[in-house]
Design a protein around this nucleic acid. Structure first.
Lengths: 196, 196
DNA sequence: CCCTCCAACTTGTCATTGACAAGATATGCG
DNA sequence: CGCATATCTTGTCAATGACAAGTTGGAGGG
């Protein structure tokens, strides 16, 4: 299909794929329009015709990320073979942490501060993020904000350099994070009386 | 003292101050070595002699931020006039949220992903971040990781664009965040039996 | 008081990058 | 076959970080 014929044929998709690879290996700073073009063997200005601006490209990547994120969370709404736990909130929380673990580059892009405000207001992007939020509301009820904060914070701290300096600490942290999530859900369930 | 004499006299301090202002108004992207120089009326290469690299300047700013952050948290260890609550964890959590609210530019710099790894490993910076972590451990005991995740996550979601699209939602969110913190501390206290 | 030296600052330059303009090329359609 | 259009290329510009080499001012020794 999308042969490497002259008019590249599927440059838009190819650009998104190449961008992801660049981000995975070199971080967001490595995502240069010219680097993408070079990786694909096209001229330095070719990407502009599909993504008029670097910010637009970042937005498109984030949108893709949110779609996969929402899908992953929705899949956790019912027990699966990978996580047959009966606690809905715990399952969704685990799915959240798993996605962020396996796609740190997406996660940074989605929730970091380097997305332009225009990109954030894209209808498609907002649609996917709403889907994710809906899953959290289903799983955590009125405590959705708190639950989101917990998983979001755990993700950030796990990725960040302050809690785990050495590499061994980093390894043990996976365990700690998983336990913290369990502690949270159980303590929250113990507090599920309508207190306010 | 630091008159605007030719040899600027206190350029290092002046650069840090000007950098903070630039970040406050225009975000991290607006922090350009040349913009700083222009703001201070010096030549475009003057900052290099005090901060050999933009990354080093960012590191110095982050270090300053962590110092103020740790100091703010330590001050919350005992009841004050601003927060006379008797619950230690709640006081520290509020101080955390307050600092991040009043210094979002510092917070993004400190916990965002745009700090170079070399900057993060600066002894002074690690020292200050350890102080902050120590306060959290004092306040939350074995659940320090979970507590940190909660406040960190709340900060991020409050700042981010996904939970509050409109400006009115954003206003009501302050309230929601404060309530979520209370819900968390009380549910955690209810679960303080040594369960594992 | 002057001379020397050094740190602080300036001027000039280069490579990288995003963005744009204008031209070239292939693909599809009549 | 010929034209129109989307797609891609080449060329260029401004902004920026980084570096090199020159300039200035003032501090300290004689």
């Amino acid at each position: 299909m999308s042969k490497a014929r002259y008019h590249h044929g599927d440059l838009k998709h190819a650009i998104l794929e190449a961008s992801l690879e660049l981000i995975k290996t070199g971080g967001l700073e490595a995502l240069t329009l010219r680097a993408v073009a070079g990786k694909l063997g096209v001229s330095h200005a070719a990407p502009i015709h599909h993504f008029p601006t670097r910010a637009v490209l970042l937005g498109a990547l984030a949108e893709q990320g949110f779609e996969r994120f929402a899908t992953a969370l929705e899949a956790a709404l019912e027990p699966s073979t990978t996580d047959p736990d009966h606690d809905l909130l715990l399952r969704v929380g685990r799915a959240y942490l798993t996605f962020a673990s396996e796609n740190p580059q997406y996660y940074r892009l989605m929730f970091g501060a380097e997305l332009s405000t225009e990109a954030v207001q894209t209808p498609a992007l907002r649609d996917h993020s709403s889907r994710a939020l809906a899953v959290l509301k289903t799983a955590a009820g009125p405590n959705a904000l708190l639950a989101w904060a917990v998983v979001h914070g755990l993700v950030q701290l796990r990725v960040g350099p302050y809690l785990c300096a050495t590499e061994t600490e980093r390894a043990s942290m996976e365990q700690q994070v998983a336990e913290a999530l369990v502690t949270f859900t159980s303590s929250l369930h113990g507090n599920f009386r309508s207190d306010s």
